[in-house]
Write a protein that binds this DNA or RNA. Structure first.
Length: 801
DNA sequence: GGATAGCTGTTACC
DNA sequence: ACCGGTAACAGCTATCC
């Protein structure tokens, strides 16, 4: 029979010596479909004389087939032996072959069977196909026909379709518990949200409840009901926020405690966990998406949120946040009203998760289609994982066999290697400037990698004739082949595609085009980091160091040319520089940009970032030099661009950031400091009169490692310890909040004065004046010759007399 | 013993 | 399991008077 099909989840099995992939997905009529397709597992053996050992390899146990092929490895043509065997025997067969001759090496034993299936022209995830298959019934294919799908087919033919749209059915869920430690308390309630569906399942005080609350006898019943609802709703995707690390582990622990066997989805799967850390929770035949994971790797760079918690992220992306509820009250002490609030709170979390999913879906969909790994995997990949798998899924076009993943020992060696010189940063001269422009290189590092062919396979151990030479530092040169490598080729393609989709997006915007353009941009940006990453298959520190060295060379060159043209360059960092127009017109400046571009090699390109009305650079707090990576600009239509200032740092109190932001605004808009100074004086007065709200004085710092590993006990570490004593859970990654209070002790350390936000105590006037407000404004006023320190001191003396 | 300079550890940003 | 550069804090330590 024929139908339109889209694949969501992949699994595999072996039957009578043949490997199969089982794809679960949907038909265009939304029928649930399971599809079985053959896959032949193989790997490669590298040998100097493949013909000589071929016969011996045929004799190794469990080898199904061995053939000699012309392939390419690290860009060089070679003859290799391709070995076919059952997937489960891959390791074993490889080890036995190595015993035939100790000089033999294997490759692609570390390619998973599903990846293999997809690269060898199997069905790609989240792509529509017209398929033709044979109905599987009963016990065929090990009982696949007995699974709870509308249709189970064995695949005969498939044709990729052009159709792009796919709206999956999604179920979002969230649990509430009393004890946050996994499995250590009871699950009080579970909320579920899907299309036109809202439920809170609970077994706590619900005699007078909201209509969406369903009441049960005990925890066991809500767990069972949860399973029933998942199966009744029959979603394509089940999603949560940090559900890999919290909700699913908790659900499984409590199910075990209650002696029930949760069977989820059409395959009646248990909740399965990966070995090691971080945990990930898988349900066969039902894709579990943990939104936090995707946000961490792909989305966080676009977010302003100070944490990646559900509340902050929802507020920014959806414009609504979590509800408030007091978690401290023990379950038995909650009033009826408090329970109703708690149900509402629990439901809201699932509503937010459900909405966030749809906001992020175009991005997850496009990354899945571009990188071609299943959604479950894409959701959990790091940025380098996405880059590397994009390469792997495109190797066949270059007839390449994959380099091996580095093992523990090799990773150790790589980590021992020293650092290399990074970007160039020009020291600015502190001042308020007028009429500026910024030029920057588009995807500078990626365009250098492409233009100079920098990668592991193109790297040459020593100089060869007609090779590309790069000087890393004085007298230290490295060489790369000029024959275009597959990594620079793929990267060039990524850059070209990004441009194409960006243009299409401008012409006719939609969420899918935006996501696609964005995905290619992110892949291009991550390629440089990939080269220098110790875990990469195609690790090449020389390529990374060369990229940085060439970037330094070209930005310096551009700066020199710009100065020669009569402009004054004020500042530069890595891939862009700011300069004064010096009475030249915008038109002249744009024309000059064209000249600069005509002399750049390869696909390198400079672009005009913007023109600015004013820009402010300040001194460092130590010394009279201009501070790097710290500046504020305003465009002609009043848009602010603030970099590096305390304003953008979350480990400063809100008041200091607010004051700084206000005065930067005033100064850039008016071009003078009068208004800003008046405002600052008013704030100083307010602090001294203790009129400032304590909430505006809270400082938040992230805990980056376990408490025991800190050598130096900063204020946030001291507070974290205090929290632990009070049995407030403290974990790595948490933002620790505190304020600085007064102390009777003279010269007390900050950590001795630090107090929890809810602790009683007056704030320390001296600390907030001299350690928060002063550092935030001092350098800015210094540009105008105003000494804020004197102002603070002066008003202190006035008070004394 | 207290003050202070300079170094180290730490966080956050470009 | 992404790179290096930079600012700036608080804590820590050597050194001086």
């Amino acid at each position: 029979m024929k139908l339109k099909f889209i694949g969501l989840d992949y699994d595999y099995f072996n039957l009578e010596g043949q490997d199969y992939v089982k794809i679960t997905g949907r038909s265009s009529e939304r029928k649930s479909v399971c599809l079985v397709d053959k896959v032949d597992n193989f790997f490669y053996v590298l040998s100097k004389k493949p013909e000589k050992i071929l016969a011996k390899i045929w004799k190794v146990k469990d080898v199904k087939k061995a053939e000699i092929l012309e392939k390419s490895y690290l860009g060089k043509k070679i003859k290799v032996i391709r070995i076919y065997c059952d997937y489960s025997k891959t390791k074993d067969v490889g080890d036995k072959i190595k015993r035939v001759d100790k000089n033999l090496e294997t490759r692609e034993r570390d390619i998973g069977l599903i990846t293999r299936y997809i690269t060898e022209k199997g069905l790609k995830p989240l792509v529509w196909y017209e398929i033709e298959g044979e109905l599987i019934t009963g016990n065929d294919f090990g009982g696949a026909g007995n699974l709870d799908f509308d249709l189970c087919l064995s695949l005969k033919e498939s044709k990729e379709l052009d159709e792009k749209e796919f709206n999956p059915k999604v179920l979002a869920f969230d649990i509430e518990v009393e004890n946050l430690e996994i499995g250590k308390g009871e699950i009080l309630m579970i909320s579920l949200v899907s299309d036109n569906f809202k439920k809170v399942l609970t077994w706590k005080k619900c005699d007078r409840r909201q209509e969406y609350v369903e009441c049960f006898k005990d925890e066991e019943e809500i767990l069972e009901k949860f399973g029933e609802y998942v199966n009744k709703i029959d979603p394509d995707i089940i999603t949560g926020y940090f559900s890999d690390g919290f909700d699913f582990p908790y659900l499984r622990a409590r199910a075990e405690e209650n002696g029930i066997n949760l069977k989820l989805g059409r395959e009646k799967s248990r909740i399965l966990f990966s070995r090691g850390r971080p945990l990930n929770a898988k349900i066969k035949g039902l894709v579990h998406v943990d939104l936090l994971k995707f946000i961490e790797t792909v989305y966080s760079q676009y977010l302003q949120s100070e944490t990646l918690g559900l509340n902050d992220v929802s507020k920014e992306l959806l414009g609504e946040g979590k509800l408030e509820v007091d978690h401290e009250i023990k379950a038995d002490d909650r009033s009826e009203k408090q329970w109703k609030d708690y149900f509402e709170y629990n439901l809201q979390d699932s509503i937010l998760t459900y909405k966030l999913f749809h906001k992020l879906w175009p991005d997850m969909l496009e990354f899945t289609r571009i990188v071609q790994e299943p959604l479950f995997i894409i959701n959990r990949f790091s940025m380098t994982g996405l880059v590397e798998n994009y390469f792997i899924h495109n190797l066949n076009r270059f007839n390449e066999i994959a380099e091996k993943r580095p093992l523990y020992e090799e990773i150790g060696k790589r980590r021992m290697r020293g650092k290399y010189e990074g970007a160039f940063v020009l020291q600015p001269k502190p001042a308020l400037y007028e009429n500026l422009a910024i030029f920057d290189f588009t995807s500078m590092y990626a365009s250098i990698i492409v233009s100079f062919n920098l990668s592991h396979p193109t790297f040459l151990e020593k100089k060869e004739k007609d090779s590309q030479e790069v000087e890393l530092e004085k007298g230290k040169k490295v060489y790369f082949s000029k024959k275009k490598g597959f990594i620079p080729s793929l990267l060039e393609e990524i850059i070209v595609l990004r441009k194409k989709y960006k243009k299409e997006l401008r012409e006719k915007p939609d969420a899918i085009k935006k996501a696609r353009s964005n995905a290619f941009k992110l892949l291009a940006n991550a390629a440089y980091g990939y080269n220098g990453f110790f875990g990469a298959r195609y690790y090449c520190l020389e390529a990374a160091a060369s990229t940085a060295a060439l970037a330094r060379k070209f930005i310096k060159q551009a700066i020199n040319k710009t100065e020669k043209q009569g402009y004054k360059v004020i500042y530069a960092d890595t891939d862009g520089f700011a300069f004064l127009l010096n009475k030249k017109t915008k038109k002249e400046t744009k024309d000059f940009l064209k000249i600069l571009n005509s002399h750049l090699p390869g696909i390198m390109e400079l672009e005009l970032e913007d023109f600015y009305k004013r820009g402010l650079w300040v001194t460092k707090r130590t010394g009279e030099f201009g501070a790097k990576k710290k500046y504020a600009l305003i465009t002609e239509d009043g848009k602010l661009k603030i970099r590096g200032f305390e304003t953008v740092r979350r480990d400063w109190c809100y008041l200091a950031r607010e004051v700084q932001n206000t005065i930067l605004n005033d100064i850039l808009k008016d071009g003078n400091q009068e208004k800003a100074l008046k405002f600052t004086k008013a704030v100083i007065k307010k602090i001294k009169k203790r009129e400032v709200d304590k909430r505006d004085l809270i400082i938040r710092t992230q805990l980056k490692k376990p408490l025991s590993e800190y050598k130096s006990e900063g204020p946030h570490v001291a507070i974290a310890r205090k929290m632990q004593e009070k049995e407030i859970p403290v974990d790595i990654g948490m933002l620790i909040s505190y304020f600085v209070g007064e102390s009777k002790k003279k010269r007390a350390l900050v950590r001795e004065r630090a107090l929890l936000p809810e602790e009683k105590g007056e704030y320390d006037i001296e600390y907030y004046l001299n350690h928060q407000i002063l550092p935030a404004v001092e350098n800015i006023f210094e540009v105008f010759g105003v000494n804020v320190k004197e102002i603070i001191k002066g008003s202190e003396q006035k008070k004394l007399f």
